[in-house]
Design a binder for these strands. Structure first.
Lengths: 327, 327
DNA sequence: TCAAAAGTGTTATCCTTACACCCATGT
DNA sequence: ACATGGGTGTAAGGATAACACTTTTGA
């Protein structure tokens, strides 16, 4: 059937990439500034089926050309097609469908990353989703700003607590954590979408949604179009994936100390991890091997350097960093 | 950036649904026959952004209109856009991008399912991916047909065993299981794609790929376009998802026995599950509650009837059937 | 000598897996 | 009575989480 359709409105497929790297133990994301100003967007380009056989080929070519960043791991996230979530100028413009991708790279590695084009830069991803950074404990703005405002929002429609549909209050508690329920760091997208629904992020205003009255301070730095939603999707996927696939090593240099690996895992997961258990877990899982070299750049006792054991790809079906609740 | 593109070839977005139901303890999928003959395809329709605000709304409307099947759970799977995987008649036709969806429904429930249109029918999904059914132990055609042919294929390019890229033999072993390595039931798509690469499925021929010489028997019933690939994606996703989300109850009637629930879990996962552990796992996880009624239709001792406890959605973050290796 | 970070050992607890067994009903 | 499927108890093993402690360097 699929080949007999005739579209009634031109449709454009945009490939959008959340390109993640780690710098100084913090996760960053590659951004462009399409209007030349302060507004941020993800690198994004059109899919041209004539020039490129697959989405991924198109994406790699496009990103490489525009930002100079060499992509390692690339994974499709989700395809967003909602009308009204892309801030179109008019209804006569083509409808844009965004295929979101997660990509991993290294800043300043020998292959030429770090020399990204002048119009692109790496920014801390927690600038855009600050409530996701629990490395230093529960973020203060949760209790000072987010939960009070969500509280107001839940009171607007309190009675929905049927068993089929979750009430607003139940969604808030399940996603942002409360006394009994924990904060699950993988539900990044769900939290962002809830804040969008509640009118607490700038993008909701741009899409023509009513903001919560009184017009309170917006939470986290906004992005153009629906790109912050794609970033949230990428963050959630990466947090889940690193537990069962060794993707984190795409973000590490060739050799690294176990502490550096732990800092990267913490940067991505947004959680503090337990040092001793993390080390034992990593060493016992055979995903790394010592190089024999030592790093003296640590400030204290020199640390042994390790490298990723690529052979685990052949040995084990799901070799990730199985960081549990306490890592 | 995304809104400034100009496409060079018309692009069409097709919404394609793998609609799953369970009949007589076996998983089935809803199929259409676009050419009126024996060839099968998944229900599929164009996305029209004017008529439908979101993909999901468009998909529900379209499937409901064409097949009469009421969809319960709906989830986006993946977006396929490869040139050359959709059997287009010519290069002048619009390029088709398929957004694949997984949907769950019930056959013959009181809401009108089962009365699907005459042009649509439910077929066993293992007819199309027979190597995925391990309920009765290791499928015979693995050793009689698939592995011998893959063996030939691996010998065509044996030397690739670097640490960066897996060799053909390593991929076969990791995906289809061998002496040391187990068969992971979630990697449905990866197995199908490997068989496609090896030229062992009919779709590879239709897409113009060279089939393995001598032209050996094809494995599993083919589908039109790339729809068997979407089915494989759906099967893998459902097998993974049912372990941490209570999606399986979308396939069950309102009340059911624990054995019926186990048969359904086995139907989806394609594995035999351990009875005692399955029961304890289910009962202790509080996802079901006894109705107090008994079923006398079992042949032996009457079985207690249970229902899904929808409250778990409010209580626990990840309430699935945590079936491990032995369930 | 002291701060700072690396690195090791041990134990309690929970979850998974496996095995053995009893119960209630229809024929 | 016996076949058939329903239902329960318990113990071994492994993984996780939490604890306390020692070692090695640079300043």
């Amino acid at each position: 059937m699929t080949s007999h359709h005739s579209a009634t409105l031109p449709i454009e497929v945009g490939l959008t990439a959340a390109i993640v790297a780690v710098r100084d133990d913090s996760p960053t994301i590659l951004l462009t500034h399409p209007d030349g100003g302060a507004n941020s967007a993800l690198p994004s380009g059109p899919f041209d089926p004539v020039a490129h056989r697959t989405f991924e080929i198109g994406l790699r070519a496009w990103v490489s050309e525009q930002t100079g960043a060499p992509l390692g791991y690339v994974e499709q996230l989700y395809t967003f097609g909602d009308r009204g979530r892309h801030a179109q100028a008019s209804d006569r413009e083509p409808h844009v469908v965004s295929v979101g991708y997660l990509a991993l790279t290294r800043i300043g590695d020998e292959h030429g990353a770090g020399q990204v084009a002048a119009s692109a830069d790496f920014r801390l991803w927690y600038d855009f989703l600050p409530w996701e950074d629990w490395r230093g404990g529960r973020p203060a703005l949760l209790d000072s700003v987010i939960l009070p405002q969500l509280e107001t929002w839940t009171r607007e429609a309190p009675g929905w607590g049927s068993t089929r549909v979750l009430s607003r209050a139940e969604r808030v508690r399940l996603l942002f954590g409360g006394k009994e329920s924990a904060f699950n760091e993988e539900n990044v997208l769900e939290r962002y979408e809830l804040l969008y629904e509640a009118g607490l992020v700038e993008e909701a205003r741009q899409d023509g949604r009513e903001l919560q009255a009184p017009a309170v301070e917006q939470i986290g730095e906004p992005m153009l179009y629906d790109h912050r939603r794609i970033l949230a999707t990428a963050m959630g996927r990466l947090r889940a994936k690193m537990k069962y696939r060794p993707v984190i090593f795409e973000l590490m240099p060739e050799t690294f100390t176990l502490t550096a690996l732990q800092r990267t895992a913490e940067a991505i997961s947004g959680r503090h991890l337990h040092k001793q258990n993390f080390r034992r877990l990593v060493e016992s899982s055979a995903v790394v091997e010592p190089t024999g070299e030592m790093s003296h750049a640590t400030g204290g006792r020199p640390a042994a350097l390790f490298r990723f054991r690529r052979e685990v790809l052949q040995e084990r079906p799901a070799p990730g960093l199985r960081v549990g609740l306490r890592g």
